[in-house]
Nucleic acid binder design. Sequence first.
DNA 1: GAGTTTGAAACT
DNA 2: CAGTTTCAAACTC
Length: 883
Amino acid sequence: MDSSPQSASNTTTTTAAATTAIVAAATFSDSSPVQESPFSNYISNLSPIKPVKAAHVAQGFLGVSSPPLVFTSPRIIPHRETSFFQRSQLAQVPSAETPENDGGRNNLAGLSDDIGKSVNYSTKSITDSHQENAGENSARDQPGSSSGCVDEYLYDPVDVDCASSVNLVNPNAKQSNDVLQSSALSEHAEQDQGHSMFEIKPAQVEKEQSSNKQSPIKCPKDESGMTMGHFPEKKQCDVLESQVVRAQEDYNENVGASLQGALDNIVQREPEASHLQRGLSRRCLQFGETRWKTVVNSTCSPNLMNNVTSSRSPASAMELESLDGSLVDLSDSSSKKQTVNLSRSATSMFPPRGNEKLPITVSKPSGIGLHLNSIVNTSAVGHTTATNIESSNCSESSNLVEKIAITPKDRMLETKASLPASAATADSLHNAEPSNMLQPVGHQTTPLNKRKFNPEHGYNVEEFGQVSPAKKKRKKSSSLDGDGCKRCNCKRTKCLKLPEYEDTVIETRQQIESRNPNAFAPKIVQHVAEFAAEDGNQLMPSLARHKRGCHCKRSMCLKKYCECYQANVGCSSDCRCEGCKNVYGRKEEYGSTGEIASNIVRKQILDGRIDDKLEMAATNSDFLHAELYDLRHLTPSTPSIQHSDHGKDAQVQFNSSRYVPSPESDFSILPSYAKSISSPSNSHSNNMIPEKGEEILDIDTCGQGMDYNVAMMDQFSPRHDALVDICELTPLQNPSMTQTTSASSKTRDWTGGSRLQLCPGSGCFSSGRSFRWRSSPITPLTRLHESKNQGHDTDSGLYDILEDDTPEILKEASTPITSVKASSPNKKRVSPPHKHIQGLWSSSSGGLRSGRKFILKAVPSFPPLTPCIDSKDSRTEKKDSNK
DNA sequence: GAGTTTGAAACT
DNA sequence: CAGTTTCAAACTC
């Protein structure tokens, strides 16, 4: 055909490489896959240059009836690898599909790349090949039909890889081709096994390939899974897959010049991803798919899904695990986020295409180990896709998810400790900004929460995020199997956690529950009611307590032997412990403090001075600051209430106020304002907390915290105003909240009154409050719920919302808002701290911010679930209920 | 990793 | 309800 000059972009190197590749390709039998891509065809049509070789190679393309391939791997150029990588990364056409996936972006990039480069390549290489191999290949090189092009395109990667590595090595083009095909198949298979996000798809792809394809594509990897030495790991396969996707898309004639431009832009934007990035991208893709599954279903073509799946190289166990964690990672990493966005945009750009041939059935990653978690999840009703996926993963991911839902901090810690393999994930978590984390987490949270009640998880305190990170670490190290599922070593007790009993776990649990619905209820219960004000408007700090209390004799409730301590909750009257020194709250303190608090609240109510007090509290700039701070640090993924690092005395003491702080709350409150500010999400902050505890904390809160607050205030100019503003912004404006605030501040007295007093008017109070509000969705919610039930409708409403399927994000956001409101004394309107908040959130928790906004609009007030009850009465009831 | 400590759970 | 035993986790070395 026309060997007209190639586009300027084509470089001589490309030509040379193409030539070489072509030579090899020339030797290919008819079955050899054509290297040309649909784009090339498209381009060829547009451009004066036309494919020289007829489509002699007919390789089946996924979902696309592929006409015989016209071009023998003209583009197979070792040099091309660069482009390849790009493709490989970008390779998967976002075809309409999962925008979330990097693949989408990659695909876009790939498309653009294809358009830009591949065209050149193909045309040029074709030309070259034509020139060189005019005789032999000319017939083949005929401009192939789009399908043919597609096929080629699909195979391009393979071709490239194979050509570059195999073909070059192997003079026998046919063999190389076969190898490529086989490798591709094998890879798909591997992918299927390994990943399983889209198990079906890969298989389908294979099917299609096999059916359509004249020559099966095989990656360098052979059936045995051996990879060609030359090929970068799995990239070849990935490239193939991606190319296939691209080819499909290309085949879809939808891609127009405008698209190309857009694609080009995307491509440009797309930075060259390293392997790691790629892996992340893939993970993200899968993850994204899970999250956006719905979207994908509606809009995305199955191909994309397949692509995503297929694109994923066979994952090693490590990868799988990381993949499991990918959810988190995905959400976390900003880069990932960008990718997602890109993919989304890409998706939007690419309407669903006709490739739907490939039915996409998103199934749980089958490859991922099925464990109790997964089982439970399975049994669980109404899990979101993401949840299912996660649960199915049952590995760290599952655990992570749960823990994440529980406490961001825990999550972080846990991630670090337990997921060395997925260091990236962990890192992302840590580094990830709350916002990022929020979304994914949030999505997952709800389901996770449900999971919490799973027999296995629900039963354990850990599930509530109450387990200290250290414990988690320990457990992971000792109790978690490779999959990350909790596994105890109870070999003599027939522990249901043992995987061996998976089959029986459900049944057993059901049976048990049938007898005792509360059998698997969490051990830690919120005793908020105890302190709840009669009017119910005031939310006393909910106190998490162990249902049955501990019986510690020697540990003085200072070690994990103590369940209360382990759960980061104070001991209550229910405890029979001796010499209780529980930093979270001593047994002795429990009753007295509760009564005191309740009395105070009552008095306030009676006096009707709640508001005044609130104002006073608000007046305290520190207090306000603290509030603000808290808001900022509101963990997107609601932290587990009680989560604290055991062994961190500081936390403990801090908690001594009995407010179980969420990990993040720790941040906000902890001394570490400064610290936390810089890295609010820094998991280390908790760890860093000085063990000395209260004193330090108090000091910090009063001192550093003050300073910090001041600084903050600067940004938020009138401090109060800022708070007020926030409050107003908050959809849940509960007068009660304000009351609550005051109440809480006073309530603190009972808990850690001394400390609070240390910093009178300082953020100490706020901190306490923040704890409560920030408390993990689970516990905190519970608290809120309880207290609110007695109290305000709005509160209860909020609680309900939170408790409901409301995404974590919302919950979280709501929580902070609430707290804010509570803090605002007069509801003065002040210049919004947007700037500051945004800055913080944008950097660390954009999602949260968004979530908050969302909440504002969406959260309605709800009627109290339970009538207001006298604090004492409620208390009694609670105890009973707990017991 | 082995041994000790501890407290929950089960049982009496 | 109290006491005892069993068990596994937590802890120490």
